[in-house]
Amino acid sequence: MFNNFFISIQEKRNIMSKYNFWLLILSIILFIFSLILIQSDNFYKLNFKEFSFSEIKQNPFYVIFSSMCGFKILVSDFLWMDIIQYIGDRNNAKTNYKELYPKTMNLITIDPNFTYAYLAVSGILMFELKEIDKAIELIKKGIENNPKYWQLNLYLAAYTYSKGGNIKMAVHNIEIAVIQEGHPPMLERILGNMYVKLSEIEKPYKDFWMEKAKNLWWYMYHHPLEELNKKYAEEHLKKYGFMKYN
């Protein structure tokens, strides 16, 4: 009787072990399948990129350390704090803040989406340190990494205009900015004025620029971001004969 009892326990254990074994095999197969499924995901393909050798070479400590701990953006926040401290130290004025640009490059290597850093540092480079080319280079990198962040285009427009009065470049960048969501309504009015100015400067292409202005004003009239935009558009459409006075 006891023998039978122990045999049945042993059988039960064997069945359980087999059950566990097959469950383990099944789990492993499903697990590999799930990893393949994740790798085929669009979100994964766009956002999970292994670091390139150029990144590691440029900044080995920060890139590997931040990736290993799994908090890249916090490391970039600390790098930003370091930049702030660097700017705040008056002694660095003696060297014209020569480390500012490399430090910012370190930061954007870790987090290319730190948009505020592009705006603030390029502003300092442009207006305080008069390093126009570096400022433009930085802001262009920002646009490359954040194509939908309209402030960067606006800053680039301002810089290129300040550098050599390149109004066409400014117009091109503001055109990109006004397509993006969340841009200030005032930007559309500025763009309209710039089209008018270009039509006055480039006489042979007057019709081209006025056509662009007309399209913009009609758009502003029908889809105003604020009441002032509609009023502005109406005034200009009437002024240039695109709309009849009542």
Binding site: I73, L74, D77, M81, I84, Y116, A120
Partner: peptide, 8 residues
């Protein structure tokens, strides 16, 4: 961290 307080 002026300018990036919220994010930080």
């Amino acid at each position: 961290s002026p300018g990036a307080e919220h994010r930080t």
